[in-house]
Deep mutational scan, measured.
Amino acid sequence: ENVVSAPMPGKVLRVLVRVGDRVRVGQGLLVLEAMKMENEIPSPRDGVVKRILVKEGEIVDTGQPLIELG
């Protein structure tokens, strides 16, 4: 699984990683606000951040690609 998608609609509050960062399974990639709750979106696997597909403040839909892992 190379693309991390939004599990719910919401607003991207914070991106916690940068392109080139090594991440571990379960590590927070970004914080999504949904229904006034902050939800940290975890990495599904170990890898390297290849691309960040959203910006802070952006509104996303369920299933929208957020981050690509390499």
Rank of each mutant, 00 (worst) to 15 (best):
G57S: 05
D61S: 07
Q64R: 05
L53S: 14
G63P: 12
P42H: 10
E40I: 09
M37S: 06
V49Y: 02
E38H: 10
V60K: 02
P7Y: 08
E68I: 02
G47Q: 03
N39A: 13
K55M: 04
K36H: 07
D46C: 01
P9W: 04
V60I: 05
E58W: 03
I41E: 08
V3W: 10
N39V: 09
Q64T: 10
T62N: 06
V23Y: 13
I52Q: 05
G10E: 08
G70Y: 12
V12H: 02
K55F: 13
R22I: 13
M35Y: 06
P7M: 13
T62C: 01
R14C: 01
E58M: 05
P42V: 13
V19G: 11
N2C: 00
E33G: 14
P9L: 10
M8H: 13
N2V: 03
V15E: 03
E1K: 00
R22G: 02
D21K: 02
R45S: 15
E38R: 06
I67K: 00
T62K: 09
L53M: 09
E1Q: 00
K55E: 14
K36I: 06
V19E: 15
V3I: 06
R45Q: 15
D21Q: 04
G63R: 03
P65R: 00
P65Q: 09
V48M: 08
V23G: 04
S5Q: 04
I59H: 09
G20C: 01
D61W: 05
G10Y: 14
L29C: 00
G47W: 03
M37C: 01
V19C: 01
G47V: 08
S43F: 03
L66V: 04
L13Y: 08
G63Q: 02
L66F: 02
V49N: 07
V48G: 07
V15F: 08
E1V: 00
R24S: 14
E33N: 10
G26S: 14
E56P: 03
G57T: 07
A6Q: 11
V17I: 10
I67G: 15
G63S: 07
S43I: 09
G70V: 11
R22P: 04
G47C: 01
L69I: 13
A34R: 05
G20A: 06
I52C: 01
L66R: 00
G57V: 07
G28E: 09
E33C: 01
E33S: 08
V23I: 10
